[in-house]
């Protein structure tokens, strides 16, 4: 019989097992019930589950399962929006108590590319990345290529995430690719791209010079980990 970890959701004498808890948290996300999610977290912590375990054993698996559901086109933007809020709630509740065991905190720069003003997807991605431990620098809408690169250099980011909803604005990401290359940062500063148009036209990723994309917010962490590892030549955070 495998050994169970101390203070985890798995071996808590009173808390439901991890799979059940994850399912309940996922249910709260799907039912857009932020209060139920908060209650679940409070219950887990009251029963002695360490905050870092709440994140790794409860939140992470729920977000992963939500991502699968998104891939199956069975959850909506509203449900993803609530999931992002729940993730932020849990982080705000748990991170101050995690202390030295805090997530990796590597910087990433996000923004909607020049002329693009569809911010909601980017905001949700930012929430998911913060939940996964990234130090998110969100530059907002209508961000020029030069400003993306300057911020990435300033904060030491290895990845820029550029968002665009429509093809007309997505093509502006090409300017960002050119700016990264012109500054000699190719390979050391990776370019992740995302937004509705890339889901409809995956070939657009290569056309604008992107190094990778993800079809949903919950896949952003895995993408950025891969790109970070490629950029730094090391292990993913």
């Amino acid at each position: 019989m495998p050994r169970q970890r101390r203070g985890s959701l798995v071996n808590s004498p009173t808390a439901p097992n991890a799979r059940t808890s994850t399912s309940r948290l996922l249910d709260a996300m799907i039912n857009t019930d932020r209060a139920a999610a908060a209650s679940l977290v409070e219950q887990a912590m009251a029963e002695g589950i360490p905050p870092d375990r709440v994140i790794t054993d409860l939140l992470d698996p729920a977000l992963t399962r939500l991502g699968r559901l998104w891939g199956q086109e069975t959850v909506s933007l509203a449900q993803t929006f609530v999931a992002a809020k729940i993730a932020e709630d849990i982080l705000l509740r748990c991170l101050p108590e995690v202390g030295a065991a805090a997530p990796h905190n590597d910087p990433v720069v996000l923004g909607n590319i020049e002329d693009d003003f569809h911010s909601l997807g980017r905001r949700i991605v930012g929430s998911f990345l913060r939940a996964a431990g990234w130090d998110v620098h969100d530059l907002g809408n209508d961000v020029l290529a030069e400003d993306f690169v300057n911020k990435a250099v300033e904060v030491g980011a290895s990845v820029i995430g550029a968002s665009a909803m429509m093809q007309t604005t997505a093509l502006n990401i090409r300017k960002l690719r050119d700016r990264i290359d012109a500054r000699g940062l190719n390979g050391r500063l990776k370019l992740a791209v995302g937004g509705a148009v890339f889901n409809w036209r995956p070939d657009l990723v290569a056309e604008v010079g992107g190094d990778g994309t993800t079809t949903n917010a919950s896949g952003a962490d895995a993408l950025l980990r891969r790109l970070h590892a490629e950029a730094t030549g090391g292990a993913a955070p």
Binding site: A78, F81, H118, L120
Partner: peptide, 12 residues
């Protein structure tokens, strides 16, 4: 309100 502002209102 913007889409985010409306979502926030509608949901919460």
């Amino acid at each position: 309100l913007g889409l985010e502002g409306w979502m926030e209102t509608l949901l919460f």
